[in-house]
Design a protein around this nucleic acid. Structure first.
Lengths: 233, 233
DNA sequence: CGCCTCTTTGAAGAGGGTCAAGCGAGGTGG
DNA sequence: CCACCTCGCTTGACCCTCTTCAAAGAGGCG
């Protein structure tokens, strides 16, 4: 698919392009390019010149960085309709890697920057999104700085379920449902600022306590959302 | 000072207003209002309707939130020329309190939002600032999630000195200099996700090791920036 | 079936939290 | 001017959570 079609895009109404009229959209169309990523494939490298920005159409990606001694910290997860990359910046401040097979709509940063500056409506959307992302990131700081391992994992599972269930469109009601974890245990540890062993132990304990079920490594069921919410602090 | 004068503003060239022409500036002038805050005074309360946004002219303020069990986490520090508040949002996602006597230039959010939407240049500045703030916040996540108490405090002191020395304009060279900490030990603990005791112990150890000097509670000298940089990871 | 990777589990240890007491600078009142 | 009080900070002792190190278990895939 080298000829993207914004008009037919799955995330058309949720991404930053939502407010554009059809003329603007086809202009954007002309500078964008679809790209598929396999799980594990890297899209951007930390410290590189910031050449790309992108919209996520499908899949989950991680933003991450490393300490001097090589420990990874995942700085954020990016889902369909989220924007990704560093417009108006020199270098990419974090690495970006696909956690699942993914589908993104990429732009050369220079093209995108120019387009954005000429289309305030897009720039406004981008601003709203960035502000929302900043709020989300700050909430994550509370988790990293002040929560116990148990609280961290409970918070993580609850948020993840909301994200996975239905693209975040509606809160999850009714029967507990099985869903796929897009992250390995190690990656969950890197999100929460824990070690893989601690994550694994917390999973086991929650399962033993009947709060969750783990049909397989990558599958989860939240049996007791109430109790998990309680735990999450 | 109820009649602000943007043209004469100390942070005129560094704040988001930097790119405005004089006509725009006087319009902004007419919707803004100067306000002085005493150290400890609260400007915004978490969860309140988002009614205000502001530019910091002078002083240091903190953004903070609390866990369910009452532990505070400082989400960010705001310095002169920084922007503060949540434009285009319903509620204030964190509390804002002055750490030192401060001087801010406040706007009714509704007024500011309208002005911003009508002046893409301002909105663009705001976007650049928000993106930079997001990068800074993400770097802080690495600190919270992956660093030891010692690394945290070393990082904190180094960054703080850069901020305090000269408004962040130039890197600090030459002789070690005494400067004022705008935060109490407890507040430092809340920034770093530690307890006051741990912060205090780390201070004492660094002093004993000759890395820093503490002429009084609120004064610091970084004697060995090299070594501290090493420690900070 | 066997290998490889990811995950789980166990045991030991350290870093930081908690609780409690002591210190000291600044402010107040005698 | 000094004694006293207060509040923030420091220091000590102990304990708990999470990390570290090590080994065994469980899927997945050739």
């Amino acid at each position: 698919m080298h000829a993207p079609l914004c008009q037919a895009c799955a995330i058309r109404n949720r991404a930053i392009c939502a407010d554009l009229d059809s003329e603007e959209l086809s202009l954007l169309n002309s500078i964008g390019r679809q790209r598929r990523l396999r799980a594990g494939e890297q899209l951007l490298w930390e410290g590189d010149e910031a050449v790309l920005v992108a919209n996520v159409v499908e899949g989950v990606l991680k933003l991450s960085t490393f300490t001097a001694d090589g420990k990874e910290q995942i700085l954020g997860l990016v889902y369909p309709s989220d924007f990704l990359g560093r417009p108006f910046g020199e270098t990419t401040p974090y690495g970006v890697e696909a956690l699942t097979d993914a589908h993104v709509c990429v732009f050369q940063r220079a093209d995108f920057d120019r387009f954005a500056r000429e289309h305030p409506r897009l720039e406004h959307k981008l601003l709203e999104r960035t502000l929302a992302e900043l709020d989300r990131t700050r909430r994550w700081m509370l988790l990293l700085g002040r929560m116990s391992a148990e609280q961290k994992l409970a918070s993580f599972l609850l948020e993840m379920e909301d994200r996975m269930a239905n693209g975040g469109c509606a809160p999850s009601f009714g029967e507990p449902k099985v869903w796929q974890l897009p992250l390995s245990r190690q990656q969950i540890a890197d999100v929460l600022g824990l070690t893989i062993e601690t994550v694994s132990r917390q999973f086991s304990r929650m399962k033993a306590d009947g709060l969750i079920d783990l049909p397989s490594r990558r599958e989860v069921v939240l049996l007791e959302r109430e109790a998990l919410t309680e735990l999450s602090g």
